[in-house]
Design a binder for these strands. Structure first.
Lengths: 136, 136
DNA sequence: CTCCCTGCAAAACCTTTGCAATGGA
DNA sequence: TCCATTGCAAAGGTTTTGCAGGGAG
């Protein structure tokens, strides 16, 4: 994925730089994170301003997208750089787990089509109480 | 709905005040809005700080919830105070339209159940290009 | 009559921007 | 070399907090 990412930048006439690689690698290791977590982790080696600029750029290029999970605004790599999935978030312990579901996907296609939309992407977030917390 | 809202507050031992009513009524009239829009509209009659406190309170009480639509973080009344629905957002013109779908809902239940989650709520956002913009 | 809430003002955060220096291609 | 990109510093927004006065129950 790292190579694809670098190619993607160069193909868009952009440069592969330290802050960009830094942020991308952090996102690869951390599905569903926050901007402040990125700053917290990469902040030593890259300036806050560069991190914001990088995140803005990644959004424009479709490398990442925003999600609301557990009520918080978060970011994650988009489908081209991570396998397509959604989240189940536990309202009690805050943990999120990934889910994939074929049937669901085809329903979303059907809905978009019925409404005359050419679908580009979608996001789903299911909130509830996880098995573990139901026992506890 | 307005009565239900007032009852909800009083039942929780909270007071029905001008800023709270103000914000609630604005949300009733504006599905899918932003905090700054609320401030922009209610700002004359309620202090920013009270608006933030009210929104925080509404979130805790489950009166509203957050959504990402068209890449922006937004708020809207939750199911108990508005009919359950999701959004189709156009990436070109930015407009959002509401969608309801039975099949989709039952799929989400199935997924939650399969993962041992007791589902509380879910959010879906489909992004694409609307019929109008496809022609334009 | 009580305290829960509000408004105000200030603090704390978060995000963006301008500009000179730096380093990829 | 050349220009995109960075770091720094400062500005611009947004959200939170402390406190005294005011209003709902």
């Amino acid at each position: 994925m790292r190579d694809k990412f670098k190619r993607h930048l160069r193909d868009s006439g952009l440069k592969v730089t330290a802050p960009r690689t830094e942020v991308f690698e952090f996102l690869e290791k951390n599905d569903l994170t926050t901007i402040s977590a990125v700053i917290g982790h990469c902040g030593g080696r890259a300036d806050r301003a560069s991190i914001y600029r990088t995140i803005g750029l990644f959004r424009e290029l479709g490398i990442i997208h925003d999600v609301v999970a557990g009520g918080k605004r978060m970011i994650e790599l988009s489908d081209r750089f991570a396998s397509h999935h959604h989240h189940l978030s536990c309202l009690r312990c805050g943990k999120s787990e990934a889910v994939s579901d074929r049937v669901l996907e085809s329903d979303l296609d059907r809905i978009a089509q019925k409404n005359g939309f050419r679908q580009v992407s979608h996001q789903i977030e299911i909130s509830g109480i996880c098995a573990r917390c139901q026992r506890g």
